[in-house]
C-alpha cells in the first residue's frame, strides 16, 4: 500500500516501546507514521520531510520538545504540533503553547483521546486556514483567535469550537444535538451543558454590541444571524 493521499505523522518520542506502539496505533488508523528517538533527529526529519502532524514528547534527550517546537516555527514550518508531557502544570502548558504547539496531552493518555486530538488537529489545519469573517467578527482557525470590532475576545477551547462551527455554517440553524456531537463527541440531549456554554459565548461575543450575532431558534438550535 502506498502512502499516497494518506496523512503523514511524525512521532518524536525517546521511549522506544511507546514510539513503536504509537506508530502501530496511528498506522492502524490509516495514517503514515514515522518515529524519531531524540529532539535533534526529530527536528531534522521534520525539516527535511513534509509531515501533516508532529506528535512531540517534551522530555527528550539532546533537544527538548519545547526547543524542537520553537526551532520548527523559526524555520517557518507551520505543521501542527501535539505535545505529550508527563507534567500537568499550567506553566508547562503555557510554555508549550507559547513555543508554538497547537495542542497538549498529558501522559498517560487514553488512545481514544490521542486519536481524537490528532483527528481534530488535522481537520483544523486542512483547507480551512483562512480567517473567517462575519460582520465585524473575525475568527482565525489556525491561531484560534477571535476579534470583534478589532478587540480580541478570549474564548475557552470549547467556546471557540462552538463559535467556529456556527460561523462556518453561517445563516443556517445548527441543532443542539449536532453541536454536542461535533464539539463534545457526546450523543445525548439530556445535558444542559450547551445552554451554559451558549450563555457564556453570548456574554463574550454579543455583550455591549447592538448587533447580536448569536441567535437562538427556540426548540431547534442556534445560528449566526447576519441579516
Amino acid at each position: 500500500m502506498s502512502g499516497f493521499g494518506r496523512e503523514r505523522i511524525l512521532v518524536v518520542e525517546d521511549d522506544q516501546y511507546i514510539a513503536d506502539l504509537l506508530k502501530q496505533i496511528l498506522e492502524k488508523e490509516g495514517y503514515v507514521a514515522r518515529t524519531a528517538s531524540n529532539g535533534a533527529e526529530g527536528l531534522f526529519m521534520a525539516s527535511s520531510n513534509s509531515f501533516d502532524l508532529i506528535v512531540l514528547d517534551v522530555m527528550l534527550p539532546e533537544l527538548d520538545g519545547f526547543s524542537v517546537c520553537s526551532a520548527l516555527r523559526d524555520k517557518g514550518i507551520n505543521v501542527p504540533v501535539l505535545m505529550l508531557t508527563v507534567k500537568d502544570s499550567v506553566d508547562d502548558k503555557v510554555e508549550g503553547l507559547s513555543r508554538g504547539a497547537d495542542d497538549y496531552l498529558t501522559k498517560p493518555f487514553s488512545i481514544e483521546e490521542l486519536l481524537a486530538r490528532v483527528k481534530a488537529l488535522l481537520r483544523r489545519f486542512k483547507g480551512y486556514k483562512s480567517v473567517l469573517k462575519v460582520a465585524d467578527l473575525e475568527l482565525d482557525p489556525v491561531s484560534r483567535r477571535v476579534r470583534r470590532a478589532g478587540v480580541e475576545i478570549e474564548l475557552s477551547p470549547k467556546e471557540f469550537d462552538i463559535l467556529e462551527l456556527l460561523v462556518r455554517s453561517m445563516g443556517k440553524v445548527i441543532g443542539e444535538r449536532a453541536i454536542l456531537k461535533e464539539v463534545w463527541g457526546l450523543d445525548c440531549t439530556k445535558s444542559n451543558i450547551l445552554k451554559v456554554y451558549m450563555h457564556h459565548l453570548r456574554q463574550k461575543v454579543d455583550r455591549g454590541f447592538d448587533k447580536k450575532l448569536i441567535r437562538t431558534v427556540r426548540g431547534v438550535g442556534y445560528m449566526i444571524d447576519v441579516s
Binding site: 511507546i18 506502539l21 504509537l22 492502524k28 508527563v86 501522559k107 498517560p108 487514553s110 488512545i111
Partner: peptide
C-alpha cells in the same frame, strides 16, 4: 518529584496504551 513523575508515568503510558490498543483491535 519530577523524575519520579517521568519514571512512573512513562511505563504506565506504555501499559495503558498497549492494553487499549489490544482491546481496540
Amino acid at each position: 518529584s519530577s523524575d519520579a513523575a517521568h519514571e512512573l508515568k512513562t511505563p504506565l503510558t506504555a501499559l495503558k496504551s498497549h492494553l487499549e490498543f489490544l482491546l481496540r483491535e
